[in-house]
């Protein structure tokens, strides 16, 4: 790890001020010279690997008093960005009314990490691409813009098949984000000029020509909360991985259904482990919406979700697996006892 200045924020304005001042010169937020520290489970890890080299780390944990509340009223869920993953996963109301949220949190990482990690930090978790995480590879467009992508022709079993570009095929690694995608969550962002709200689906940027730019956050902006309409009692998260716990998804699906008399009045599908960013399978949803729950229809929807998939040498299997995961998750949701 390289030396850095540690600043402990006393309140939101001072944290934002510190972050904004230090990062003003840098328009790529993830490489900004000042980084907020919440649970630290990604940031500290990447600093140890020399991937992230902030000059200053602003500890925002003192804001937890106001930014870690969880409240459910008028069918809307508000999750403070500094709430810990384990606390939210264990919340009985969330388990009952938004099981997909509790599932995505419970199936992520390990208990130790979930006890530390904040929700806001979790959605900003950076990719697990081995070539990104090892600085001895020069060719990583995310780390060294314009240097190429070692994963394209390298070992790319865990890489994405959706939403990638010729510049980057790294997978977005998170689980919780898929629940937020599926449920049309809103992100509350606090910055110098106050609070703004955006759709969660507008938070992450596809790699395109600039994989180094991962989000639409501006310097000095912090996620302060997530707002999720609902409830979605008929919702599940299915995560398929190489071992049963403490492992990232090979393919996963967050699914929510509004099912009445076997008709899907609404169907929501978001995919993890297969895409460059949190991924909503809108084409699949369109096929299902208003239709009767039916195996052939579900197969058609799953096919549609992966119609634009672009696999590489070692991740061809993710297309077939991803489709099966959609199908199984929909079946699980449809047969839930609620």
């Amino acid at each position: 790890m390289r030396p850095f200045v540690y600043q402990r924020a006393s309140d939101a304005p001072s944290a934002i001020q510190n972050l904004a001042t230090a990062t003003a010169a840098n328009n790529v937020l993830t490489e900004a010279s000042a980084q907020p520290l919440a649970g630290g489970t990604t940031l500290i890890d990447l600093m140890k690997l020399d991937v992230m080299r902030p000059k200053a780390v602003v500890d925002i944990n003192p804001l937890a008093a106001s930014w870690s509340n969880v409240s459910l009223d008028d069918d809307n869920l508000r999750l403070g960005a500094l709430a810990r993953m384990s606390d939210v996963a264990a919340n009985p109301e969330i388990q009952q009314h938004y099981p997909v949220i509790a599932d995505t949190l419970k199936l992520a990482a390990s208990p130790q990490l979930r006890n530390m990690a904040s929700l806001g930090g979790n959605v900003l978790q950076r990719t697990r691409c081995s070539y990104f995480r090892d600085v001895s590879y020069h060719n990583c467009n995310k780390r060294n813009p314009g240097s190429g992508c070692a994963a394209l022709e390298g070992f790319n079993r865990s890489h994405a098949v959706l939403g990638t570009s010729e510049q980057c095929i790294a997978t977005y690694p998170g689980d919780f984000a898929q629940a937020l995608m599926a449920l049309d969550a809103t992100v509350e962002i606090t910055g110098r000029s106050g609070v703004r709200k955006i759709r969660f689906s507008d938070l992450h940027k596809r790699p395109g020509e600039s994989p180094q730019a991962e989000t639409t956050l501006s310097p000095g902006e912090l996620i302060s909360a997530f707002l999720i309409p609902g409830p979605w009692p008929r919702s599940v998260y299915l995560k398929v991985r190489d071992r049963q716990s403490y492992e990232f998804a090979l393919a996963s699906a967050a699914v929510a259904l509004d099912l009445q008399d076997e008709v899907m009045r609404d169907a929501r599908i978001a995919l993890g482990g297969v895409a460059a960013v949190p991924w909503r399978a809108r084409e699949a949803e369109a096929i299902l919406k208003g239709q009767k729950f039916d195996d052939a229809l579900i197969d058609r929807a799953a096919d549609a979700a992966f119609a634009d998939a672009r696999p590489h040498r070692h991740n061809v299997f993710k297309v077939a697996l991803g489709k099966r995961v959609i199908s199984r998750a929909l079946h699980q949701a449809a047969t839930m006892e609620i």
């Binding site: 697990r128 081995s130 090892d134 070992f155 071992r243 049963q244 716990s245 403490y246 492992e247």
Partner: peptide, 16 residues
């Protein structure tokens, strides 16, 4: 070696 760390070099966890 690509997966030269204990997150990517898989060993079983209790649940396995």
């Amino acid at each position: 070696y690509v997966n030269d760390n204990l997150a990517d070099y898989l060993v079983p966890v209790n649940a396995d």
